[in-house]
Design a protein around this nucleic acid. Structure first.
Lengths: 190, 190
DNA sequence: CCCCTTTTTAACCAGTGTTCAATTAAATAT
DNA sequence: ATATTTAATTGAACACTGGTTAAAAAGGGG
C-alpha cells in the first residue's frame, strides 16, 4: 500500500550502512542478503537499491567510511604533547583499542574475503597501512627496517583479529593489550 | 544413466574432504555449495550425502583432521636433539611454516566464522592452543606468565592470518617469518 | 538370482541479487 | 490553493542457486 514515507522517517545511506555493518560482521557478508538488511531496517528490499547501486557498492561505501575513521585516529597523534616513545606506545595501543572498540569495522576492513569485493575496496587497507608505517618510522627516528615495521603491524593485527571474534570489551582486555604492546616495544627497542 | 561406478573409482570420504578443503578456503565455506564440490569431483551432488550427513558434518570431519596434523607437528619437537632455546625457535617458526604451507587448513581451523558451525568444531582450536602453550612454557622453564604466552601466540597468528590471504609460498616469505620470530624471541628474552 | 552398497536424477522449498512499473509524499510552479 | 513534477518506496517478477531428500538404477559379492 503505502509507497513513500513521511519525510522524518525517510531512509538514508547512513542508516543502511549502520545496519548492514552490524549484520555483515555478525553473520558475514555472504550470509546477509539485501532483503535481510531491509527487513532489519523496516523497509522493503527495493528501497536499498534507490540508495546504493548494488550490494558491493554498499560494502565499498561502508569500508571507505571505516578507513577514514582509522586514518583520523592516526593523525590525532600529531597534536599530542608527549615524547616520541610515548607517542609510539599510544599508536600501538590506539590501534588495538580502535580494532577492539570497532570490531565490526575492523573485521569488514581487514578480514572480509570475497571474490565480489572489487579491487578498489582492497586499496584502502594498503593506504591505511602506509600511513601507519610512516608514523611508526617517524616515531622511531627511521631506525627500523621496513620488515620490522611490517612485523609490528602483524603482531597488532593478530591481537585484534582474535578479539574480533569475541564479545570482550576493550576495558575487559586492556591489561592483555598493554602486555602485548609492551612486548612489541621490547622487541624493537634494541 | 549410469548409477553406480566401477569399484576402483568409487568416491571416498577422503576424496571429498580434500576437494572441499581447497574450495572452502579459496572461496569460503559459504560460497562453496555441495553441488560445486560434487562437480569438482566429477560426481553428482547426491553422492556426497551418502558419505556425509550434511555440509556441516563434512566441515567437522575436515577440521578434526587438520588439528590432528598440527598437534602432531608440535609433538615432533620432543624427538629433536637441540637445546630448548633452539627448540622454541623451531616451535614458533614451525607454527608459521605450518600455517603458511597449509593455508587452507589454517584458515578453516582458526578463521571460519559461521553460525552453522557447531560448538564441537570450536573445541579443537582450544585444545590445540593448550598444547602449544604448554610446550612454550616447558621450553622456557615455566618462566613466562600465561598472558605473555598468549601474546606470543597472537603474534604468530597475526602473521599467518595475513599470509593466508595471499598466494605467497613459505619459501617466498621465509625471511619475513624469521624476522618475525626473531622479534618475538627478543620480546620474551628479557 | 538376491541383496547390499553406491550413485544418479528429479523434485522440493527457501532463498538470492536485481529490475521495474506502480504508487505516494513532498517540493515546486502556477 | 491547485496542479505538476520530482523523489522515495513498494512489491511483484525474473532467473538463479542453495541444502536436502528420496526413489530409481546399477555394480559386486554370496
Amino acid at each position: 500500500m503505502a509507497a513513500r514515507r513521511a519525510v522524518e522517517q525517510e531512509l538514508t545511506r547512513q542508516m543502511i550502512i549502520d545496519v548492514a555493518h552490524e549484520l555483515f560482521v555478525e553473520e558475514g557478508y555472504q550470509n546477509v542478503s539485501m532483503r535481510k538488511i531491509a527487513r532489519s531496517l523496516g523497509y522493503s528490499h527495493g528501497a536499498i537499491y534507490y540508495h546504493f547501486k548494488n550490494k558491493a557498492d554498499l560494502l565499498t561505501a561502508m569500508v571507505d567510511q571505516d578507513f577514514a575513521m582509522i586514518n583520523n585516529e592516526i593523525d590525532k597523534l600529531d597534536h599530542l604533547n608527549m615524547k616520541n616513545e610515548e607517542k609510539l606506545r599510544q599508536l600501538l595501543l590506539g590501534y588495538i583499542q580502535f580494532g577492539v572498540n570497532h570490531k565490526h569495522h575492523y573485521e569488514v576492513m581487514f578480514m572480509i574475503r570475497d571474490k565480489e569485493v572489487n579491487s578498489h575496496t582492497m586499496e584502502s587497507p594498503n593506504k591505511s597501512y602506509y600511513r601507519f608505517s610512516k608514523k611508526v618510522a617517524e616515531l622511531t627516528n627511521n631506525q627500523l627496517p621496513v620488515t620490522v615495521i611490517w612485523s609490528v603491524f602483524l603482531m597488532l593485527h593478530g591481537f585484534v583479529a582474535q578479539y574480533c571474534r569475541t564479545d570482550q570489551s576493550y576495558e575487559n582486555i586492556r591489561g592483555l593489550a598493554e602486555t602485548h604492546v609492551h612486548l612489541i616495544l621490547r622487541a624493537i627497542n634494541n
